[in-house]
Simulated scan of single mutants.
Amino acid sequence: MAEKQLLLSGQAHRLAEMSHEKVAAMNAFDGLLQAGGDHLRRASIKRQVEGIVGVAKENAIHFLAVQNGLQSILKRIGNASQDSYVGAYQSNGGQTPFTHATGGYSKKA
Rank of each mutant, 00 (worst) to 15 (best):
Leu40Met: 03
Ser44Trp: 03
Val53Pro: 04
Ala43Glu: 15
Gly37Asn: 01
Gln48Pro: 07
Val53Phe: 13
Gly104Cys: 06
Ser9Phe: 06
His100Pro: 00
Val86Ser: 09
Gln5Met: 13
Ala24Thr: 06
Pro97Leu: 01
Leu6His: 09
Lys57Pro: 02
Tyr105Asp: 10
Asn59Ser: 02
Ala56Lys: 05
Ala65Cys: 02
Ser9His: 05
Arg42Pro: 12
Gly31Ser: 08
Ile77Arg: 07
Gly36Ser: 02
Phe98Arg: 09
Ser19His: 10
Arg76Ala: 04
Lys46Met: 11
Asp30Phe: 10
Gly93Asn: 04
Gln34Trp: 03
Ala109Cys: 00
Val55Arg: 14
Ala88Glu: 15
His62Ile: 10
Ala80Arg: 08
Arg41Ala: 13
Pro97Phe: 06
Gly103Gln: 03
Gly37Trp: 05
Lys22Met: 14
Gly31Asp: 00
Phe98Leu: 14
His20Tyr: 11
Asn59Cys: 05
Phe29Ile: 06
Gln11Val: 02
Gln48Trp: 09
Thr102Trp: 02
Ser91Gly: 05
Gly87Ser: 12
Val53Glu: 15
Gly37Gln: 04
Gln67Trp: 13
Ile77Met: 10
Lys22Asp: 12
Lys107Thr: 00
Lys22Ala: 15
Ala24Arg: 07
Gly103Phe: 04
Ala88Ser: 15
Gly36Cys: 00
Leu15Met: 04
Gln48Ala: 11
Ala28Asp: 14
Arg41Phe: 08
Ser106Val: 10
Gly69Ser: 00
Gln71His: 13
Ala24Met: 04
Asp38Met: 08
Gly103Thr: 01
Gln82Ala: 14
Gln67Ala: 12
Leu8His: 00
Ile52Pro: 05
Gly10Ile: 02
His20Trp: 08
Ala16Gln: 04
Gln67Lys: 11
Ala65Trp: 03
Ala16Tyr: 02
Thr96Trp: 06
Leu32Asn: 03
Arg47Lys: 12
Ala65Phe: 01
His100Trp: 10
Leu15Val: 04
Lys75Glu: 02
Ser81Phe: 13
Ile45Tyr: 00
Asn79Val: 08
Asn92Phe: 04
Lys107Gln: 02
Ala80Ser: 05
Asn27Thr: 06
Gly51Lys: 01
Gln95Lys: 15
Ser106Leu: 11
Phe98Pro: 09
Lys46Val: 08
Ala28Thr: 11
Gln34Lys: 12
Ala65Ile: 01
Val66Tyr: 05
Glu3His: 11
Ser9Pro: 01
Tyr85Gly: 07
Lys108Glu: 11
Leu7Cys: 02
Pro97Lys: 00
Glu58Asn: 13
Phe29Leu: 09
Leu64Arg: 15
Leu64Ser: 15
His20Arg: 14
Gln71Cys: 01
Pro97Gln: 00
Gly104Met: 01
Ser9Ala: 00
Val66Arg: 07
His13Asp: 13
Thr102Ile: 05
Glu58Leu: 15
His13Phe: 14
Ser84Lys: 13
Tyr85Ser: 05
His100Ser: 12
Val86Thr: 07
Arg14Glu: 01
Leu33Arg: 09
Ala12Gly: 00
Arg41Glu: 08
Thr99Arg: 13
Gln48Leu: 13
Gly31Glu: 06
Ala35His: 02
Gly31Val: 03
Ala109Lys: 07
Leu15Lys: 03
Ser106Ile: 04
Gly36Ala: 01
Gly54Asn: 09
Gln82Tyr: 08
Leu74Glu: 07
Gly10Tyr: 07
Arg76Leu: 05
Asn59His: 03
Thr96Glu: 10
Arg47Asp: 00
Ser106Asn: 09
Leu40Lys: 00
Gly94Ser: 14
Tyr85Asn: 11
